[in-house]
Amino acid sequence: MTKKEKKEIIIDPTQKQNPVIAALKRIFMASFAIVVFLIIWEVAARLELVSVPAFFPPVTKIAAALADEAVKGYLWKNILISLRRSLLGFGLGLLVAIPLGLAIGWFKLFGDLVNPLLQVFRNLPTLALLPVFVMFFGIGELSKVMVILWGVLWYTLLNTISGVRSVDPQLIKAARSMGTGSLRLFGTVVLPAALPFIFTGMRISATVSILILIAAEMMGANRGLGYAMFFYQGNFLIPKMFGYIVVMAIIGTALSFVLEHIEKRSFRWRDETGST
């Protein structure tokens, strides 16, 4: 079937494609490498080509383990609690990062004063900070949310700063020539110009909020995706461990896919068609 499609394209590249076929093709393109990878995995695991086969279950076994978790209801509970943590950490992170980033970007003196500290902080690995978070916030929900907040903060913050700093000075000049005051200048020029940058930062932050779950849930959790992964690893239920890794990967990918889509749609004015 794919062969036939290819032929059609070669014969008449301008011909409008059937939307169903086009969609199928897109799905095929998107999943090809993944499917091949899974098949190789499956075959390699079945043939026990690795040194410790117990640590390397076939894909079908992982799927079965995951289905078991789903049927028992653990999977959904873990997803829910983890998403709640991520969302909370992400949301609070934005509440800190965006205003702070706007202030640092806009008030040059403030930015210059704060920047050295930011550079030090953002280069601290989140994992190294876990004990500190436990000390400050205990091992409850709060410290998990704070870890996510910390991990998420930087991407939005740094993007917001560079967004504000990269506002075209000509646009500021144009607005000021019309008698625009500082507040209006900020609202009608600086903010809209920085918005695409802020959104890119938010998108990366959102993905990171899922990735960082593992670190957050290393601290005395008893539920959540990261926790479940560690739990099953500790109990040598390797297919389930892999199952949870897969779930996290799926959630992360879906999230960044959706956000990338929104981003593309939201900034039509940014599409370069020979503009300045």
Binding site: Q170, K173, A174, M178
Partner: peptide, 17 residues
């Protein structure tokens, strides 16, 4: 600056958004 003068700059300086 004030609205009694209109300034048209070389690079247009239109607000792209």
């Amino acid at each position: 600056p004030a609205l009694d003068r209109g300034f048209i700059m070389q690079g247009y300086a239109l607000f792209p958004w």
